[in-house]
Simulated scan of single mutants.
Amino acid sequence: MSPRPPAPRPADLRAEPVDDVLGHVEGALRTRLDRGTLVRKRRSLGARSERGTWVRVERRGLDRIGLQGGDGTACAAALRGIAKPAWRAGIAWRDEAEPVVWRADETDLLPGAPVGRAVMAEHPGLSEEWWAALNASLDALAAQRTHRIATPDTETLTQELVTSTIDGVFPSLVTTVRELRPAHADLNWANMTAPVFCLFDWEDWGMAPRGLDAATLWGASLAVPALADRVRAERAADLESREGKLMTLFVATKIIGPHADPEDPRLGAARETAQRVARELG
């Protein structure tokens, strides 16, 4: 067995110099990026191109490439029945100085702005048509198959990860996963648009326990109880399944576990739900 690649140094692209990276992308894709539209996140960048497309650039350590190679957006182009931006081109290259892979993907522009931040602080007031489109896309995704494995937070979603995460708070539960379905694996309010629904940022999608996406979106909504209730109502079939309950615990224990933020407004609701679901599973 070959040794695991070394982990790269921690980096935050909101603060790192990125001109060389953007220049490399422009040369490879043969377009210019509008720096005035640049969106900087912790591990990704995005900007509009001169030809009216969007280019997203991600920095990912070699130790986090795993089984899926970091090409999620390109692979998602084969998925059908899902509202997502069309993929046009992609490039990848290894950093010369660090154990890091850079990946840039060019897609069509989004049909609207992101619904909000990843974790919502207020109700977005979405239309019935929006919720119907969300459900149609998630149902279409679940009906398909892939050899990819989901990587929420860039961690490969193995049985060991599920067990160790839940065991940190509920060590006596049986956490064996039996039902897998394709999942977006980063379903939060910053990765969907409104008023027209569109789901983007497909870097981490792959097979996962049923209910991962629904539980992730529920967890991102807990600071707004009415929104969290709506997510639970819309995705009840997933969340009330056995794997859906495990994924609810998986998400909740990330919020309330050893590294919990005492200022997180989701703590109370996450703890209450986790205790109830643990009793149901126990």
Score class of each variant (00 low, 15 high):
2 S>Q: 15
4 R>H: 13
6 P>I: 07
6 P>S: 10
11 A>N: 10
15 A>W: 11
17 P>F: 10
18 V>N: 01
19 D>T: 11
20 D>C: 05
21 V>L: 13
24 H>S: 14
26 E>S: 06
28 A>H: 09
32 R>E: 10
39 V>P: 05
41 K>D: 13
44 S>I: 04
44 S>T: 11
44 S>G: 03
47 A>M: 05
51 R>M: 07
55 V>R: 01
57 V>T: 06
61 G>V: 02
61 G>A: 07
61 G>F: 00
64 R>T: 13
70 G>F: 05
71 D>I: 13
75 C>T: 12
75 C>I: 11
76 A>V: 11
78 A>W: 09
79 L>V: 11
80 R>M: 07
81 G>T: 06
82 I>T: 05
85 P>R: 01
86 A>W: 09
93 W>N: 05
98 E>A: 14
98 E>D: 15
100 V>I: 15
111 P>Q: 09
115 V>K: 01
126 L>A: 08
126 L>S: 09
135 N>H: 14
135 N>D: 15
137 S>R: 07
138 L>M: 11
142 A>H: 03
143 A>R: 15
146 T>P: 00
146 T>K: 03
158 T>V: 07
163 T>M: 09
164 S>T: 15
168 G>Q: 12
168 G>K: 05
169 V>A: 03
171 P>R: 12
172 S>E: 15
174 V>H: 14
177 V>W: 00
179 E>T: 15
182 P>W: 06
185 A>E: 05
189 W>I: 02
189 W>T: 01
190 A>Y: 00
193 T>L: 03
193 T>Q: 03
197 F>T: 00
198 C>A: 14
202 W>R: 00
203 E>V: 05
207 M>S: 15
211 G>K: 02
213 D>E: 12
217 L>Q: 06
217 L>H: 04
218 W>A: 02
222 L>P: 00
224 V>K: 03
227 L>N: 07
228 A>L: 01
230 R>C: 08
240 E>F: 08
242 R>A: 06
246 L>A: 04
249 L>H: 04
255 I>G: 00
256 I>A: 03
260 A>G: 11
263 E>W: 04
264 D>Y: 02
273 T>C: 10
275 Q>H: 14
276 R>P: 03
281 L>Q: 01
